[in-house]
Design a protein around this nucleic acid. Structure first.
Lengths: 194, 194, 194, 194
DNA sequence: TATGAATGAGCTTTCATTCAT
DNA sequence: CATGAATGAAAGCTCATTCAT
């Protein structure tokens, strides 16, 4: 999972291509053209196109880990932790629009078993992180108890995903961090134990 | 927007292929093979592959209209109307798994301007329907007033989209109608004016 | 060689298509679209596309006969006869631009043995007509004797063909009849026995 | 306008195919088969079939330049210059039958605007060269003055074109250089100031 | 006489990938 | 580490033609 500079370049360029032109336009030709090297040169760095796609997913996993697991280290309450997860997402996406355009588009990787398996496992582990925070929150009487963990997770992550989708469909034209924080404040109202 | 039998067949088969194998595998060859006719025969019914994709989006638009606008006709309160939208979605997806796999995957259609424009307009008009119901609900004191319409819409539709995504990533192995109704009941708790 | 009305329509439309879009665009689809009937309907009138091409050549042969052999009937001298051939060509082409664009383009019919054979025979018989007139002219001391018949024929017909080609490459923008008559007067000077 | 070896090979092979089988048989498959490489390999050397056709026209332009402009350099009188143009054409065509079969067949390139534009510009610039020689000839009292330049050009080039066409329709079976020289001698008689 | 639906063959072009240099 | 040249497979699409109606 440790990529060379060129490999990282290929991964980034690939995410950009998917974000801007769709997975159908992620071709070796387009990748190499974007980087400015020849097509065979790509194969010095990845054995096959499939490996590039797997590398993209690995990059997503790493990205998610950073965004999701950072708050645990700090001494916040659970509501604050989820708030941090929200704002960490927004900060990351602000820096990297392409990532926002691809990371929640799991269907892109549906055309192959290995890919969709990896996608599923990433989603699964993300879910676990969120669920554990919520569970703790309910135990600590910070999060309301009358709604099951899974459903709270759906509400929290569903809204996050959808606002990000709207943001990129609006061509990143509104301030995701501001609107997203407002959204989070509203969700906070609905899920926190008053 | 009035399709012949063959055109409908092509649309349905195409949605199935996208659902099962991803957009990359939606080829004229795969479509014709699935129907049992030759590849050139497809071109008697659609001028180009692009027209098939546009027809799929038209079909989505029609599907959405049915699901979203039906409740308005009946004499339900706004909370019940949104509940109906939820259950209508679940009923439709239960009947047509492929539709569930594709209708919220707007990114599939990102590789072409005409397609992504149409996708955006569909999302837009869906959003309007939901927002109007919420607005009325707030005016009628059925839905809480301390959260803006747009954010309530994000919560409601975000959760719906995400549970559907989980359902199909779980290979349709849980009862979407049951779990979805539970989800709705929980959301109802969070958004209705107590 | 007696064509029905529909057959004549198909022949004319085909000549127009070749003239305007080149032989590569002479397809059954384009022919039927231009006439306003379905593709299979064409096959009611011609057994195959090859038969349409052969019919076009037959039409050329007939056209040429009229243009070339008419003057013989009248009591002109040979110089006047060739002058009539010139002006007959121009009159015909003025009425039918498409014909001008195709009748001297023998290469169009090079992709098939039957076609190129027919083309060759048409050229051959045209050549005979011209040569006979010239020969008579030389015998009658109307046409210079110091140049062989064949070469006079090349000069006369070469200039005619080339001015027609220039005319259609100029989009029929100059007055072919006027310019052509001038050309003929000049050629007359060069070939007639002073 | 500087072609690689492979590009030149493709151009030559393409001219041969057009000459022998007509433009309709100029397919990527036929080109690649004739060279002995695969079809996609062609696309390493030309971006599209259109570019091959444009390259053929560039080759024609270059060919024409050589044939037409060479005599100007030498110290011949204008009649001799035109004679050289004639014999240069014949020499070139003797070496390259295919070229003779294609270079005067402007209609082959009528199916596309870019092509026909280029064809027209080539014809135009050729015409200028010939006309200038004739004009000088008239000023020098070498060429008769009672026929306008344009008409002399039509006579000279029309006969040249037509004898070449006859030669290839006769399957190159007569001696073009001999017959052509005779033709030129006859034309010389008709156009030179006695 | 005409058509809607279909097809085998073939078109131009792009794909991921390989290999000699 | 990089490239120019190549390829088998497959893409979207068009061709002339057939056949049931």
């Amino acid at each position: 999972m440790n990529f060379t500079k060129r490999q990282e370049e290929i991964i980034n360029v690939s995410i950009n291509i998917i974000a801007e032109m769709g997975i159908q336009n992620l071709t070796i030709k387009n990748i190499s053209k974007a980087i400015g090297i020849s097509e065979p040169a790509i194969y010095r760095h990845f054995e096959s196109k499939m490996d590039i796609l797997l590398a993209i997913l690995s990059y997503f996993k790493k990205s998610n880990s950073i965004v999701l697991e950072t708050p645990n280290l700090e001494n916040e309450n659970t509501i604050q932790q989820i708030g941090s997860i929200y704002s960490n997402h927004f900060k990351q996406f602000k820096k990297n629009h392409a990532l926002a355009s691809v990371i929640f588009s799991e269907d892109i990787f549906k055309n192959d078993k290995r890919l969709s398996k990896k996608v599923a496992s990433i989603m699964q582990s993300n879910n676990i992180v969120i669920s554990e925070i919520i569970e703790t929150g309910q135990e600590n009487n910070e999060i309301r108890n009358d709604i099951p963990v899974d459903e709270l997770a759906l509400i929290i992550m569903g809204a996050l995903r959808l606002i990000v989708k709207k943001w990129r469909m609006a061509n990143f034209s509104f301030d995701l961090e501001k609107e997203g924080t407002n959204l989070w404040n509203s969700i906070e109202k609905t899920i926190s134990k008053k």
